[in-house]
Write a protein that binds this DNA or RNA. Structure first.
Length: 478
RNA sequence: CGGGGUGUAGCGUAGCUUGGUAUCGCGCUUGGUUUGGGACCAAGAGGUCGCAGGUUCAAAUCCUGUCACCCCGACCA
């Protein structure tokens, strides 16, 4: 950008202070406001619209694979939360408690759900009797509360919006298949709709979900090289079922314990979209997910016919794209900047000169490329341009990740990489938690995942030098 | 929760050392001129100086406490 006037001065330069840039963008793009409650945020219409789009698309995909939506209470009695040992140990430090109803102290205090495994299990214990009752593939859209120490809009808030899927199956095979199926549903969504390339793999023992046998994850690289865990899918085995006494009679008339899964993504993904795609002029939203895909900006709208023509175009294309017409009395330059701050994928400029030429000017948000489109061809051109932009955004993010992914064979190498540039580092690991802890303590990087696509960087564990079991992605994370 | 920083109009700020009429810019309102990358002129509105105590004739300013937010760690989706 630099020497032209396309630079918006109101936000911090992205490469100077990434965190401040992020904070500036979420506020200036009118996505969020801070709230009177510590650690909680207000979703303004533009931010919430993005969440609604995410919800709408994912919900459809969930239902395509047989998911049914339910709604559980937001309170969990303490005794219920206590039932699964690993689970409560994982969440106890960050749950919020309700101790009073009116002025009377409750007999048993209630926690505000940090996640709802326990409620689903309690329900399953009462509704599952026969193999004919299985599987149950339930999901709920809700918010959960985790009393985080420090918070940032979308990335970490005390209350956050998410969906949590909870399923229960006849056997391990069925449950494991569901675990992987949902992981793939997520990845399809993130890559094809959010234009964010992912590394998919398995979490280490240390990083897995409290109470799970296996946790599968997909990790995305943000523009500053840090990782964002964007969603997880867990195979829970029979641990919860045993703790909650869930049993069913199988076709062989034997009493058996069912296998479970859970999976979730949160509004944190919105933070990912911002940090993967945004630039110094603000947000850049992938067309597939953008609340407004096309912003029509009339030029010299006071001149007879300009506004009419703009409205006519709006009317013509509103069946194929989400379109807005900015007929406010701001100057065009102001509208351009505003449109860019909000990351609207395409803007259409239409003024007297265009009307005379029978065309409009279409400008891509990501490249600022100007495309002159005959009015008669708008309907066919807009989807084509958006499709190209969507692909370009994905490829740009992929290129960025590849350019910032390194391999290391020794701790010195790893240290050098982390000192000079942030990014993902591929390194071999023995599988021991001691090495994992040591790397985290010494370098501040955590194991992001054991990727499904393995590479042999060397034979030995980067930390202890013993025979390596697998290759792991290491990075600083949000 | 540890370390650092900041709180003055919607936003950004001056004033604080050395106590005494609340500063400027943007934005907002009205009218006019403008309109292809954040226009201009004129008039106007807007403040319990984060909050609570204390010192003082007098506190944005000094003292104590507290809260919120931001950054860096630790924890997490």
């Amino acid at each position: 950008m630099g020497n032209d006037k396309n630079f918006v001065q109101e936000i911090t330069n992205r490469d100077v202070d990434f965190s401040q840039w992020y904070t500036d963008v979420v506020k200036k793009a009118e996505m969020v406001d801070y709230s009177p409650v510590r650690g909680c945020m207000i979703y303004r219409p533009y931010g919430y619209a993005l969440w609604e789009n995410i919800q709408g698309i994912l919900d459809k995909k969930f239902k395509e694979v047989g998911t049914e939506n339910v709604y559980m209470p937001m309170f969990i009695p303490e005794s219920l939360l206590q039932k699964e040992k690993d689970h409560i140990e994982g969440f106890a430090p960050e749950v919020a408690w309700v101790t009073h109803g009116g002025s009377e102290e409750l007999q048993e205090r209630l926690c505000i759900r940090p996640t709802s495994e326990t409620l689903f299990c309690d329900h399953y214990a009462r509704t599952v009797e026969s193999f004919r009752d299985l599987p149950k593939v339930y999901n709920q859209w809700c918010s959960v509360v985790r009393w985080e120490k420090t918070t940032r809009p979308f990335l970490r808030t005390a209350e956050f919006l998410w969906q949590e899927g909870h399923t229960i199956h006849r056997d391990e095979k069925d449950a494991r298949e569901k675990t992987m199926q949902m992981l793939e549903v997520y990845i399809d969504f993130v890559e094809n709709y959010l234009a964010m390339p992912v590394i998919k793999g398995q979490k280490t023992e240390k990083e897995k979900f409290a109470g799970a046998i296996n946790t599968y994850t997909f990790e995305c690289m943000m523009h500053d090289g840090k990782a964002l865990q964007s969603g997880t899918s867990h195979y829970l085995g029979t641990g919860f079922a045993e703790a909650f006494g869930i049993k069913f009679t199988d076709s062989d008339n034997k009493l058996k314990t069912p296998h479970q899964t859970s999976w979730g993504v949160s509004a944190r993904m919105i933070g990912g979209i911002i940090m993967v795609h945004g630039d110094d002029s603000g947000l850049i939203l992938p067309p597939m997910i953008a609340p407004v895909q096309v912003n029509i900006i009339p030029i010299m709208q006071h001149i007879d016919g300009v506004l009419d023509k703009a409205k006519e175009i709006q009317k013509e294309i509103r069946d194929i794209v989400r379109v807005k017409l900015d007929d406010s009395d701001n100057k065009p330059g102001w509208k351009f900047s505003q449109s860019e701050m909000k990351g609207i994928p395409l803007r259409i400029e239409i003024g007297p000169k265009d009307i005379e030429a029978g065309q409009v000017v279409v400008v891509r948000r990501d490249t600022r490329e100007k495309i002159f489109v005959p009015i008669s061809e708008i309907k066919s051109e807009l989807p084509r341009i958006m499709e190209t932009m969507q692909k370009d955004m994905y490829n740009r993010a992929l290129k960025h990740r590849e350019e910032n992914t390194y391999s290391a064979q020794t701790m010195e190498e790893l240290e050098n990489i982390m000192n000079t540039s942030q990014g993902f580092v591929k390194a071999m690991w023995c599988g021991g938690i001691e090495c994992e802890n040591k790397i985290k303590e010494n370098l501040g990087v955590t194991s992001r995942c054991i990727p499904f696509e393995q590479e042999k960087v060397s034979d030995k564990c980067i930390c202890c030098g013993n025979t390596a079991k697998e290759m792991v992605y290491w990075a600083k994370a949000y």
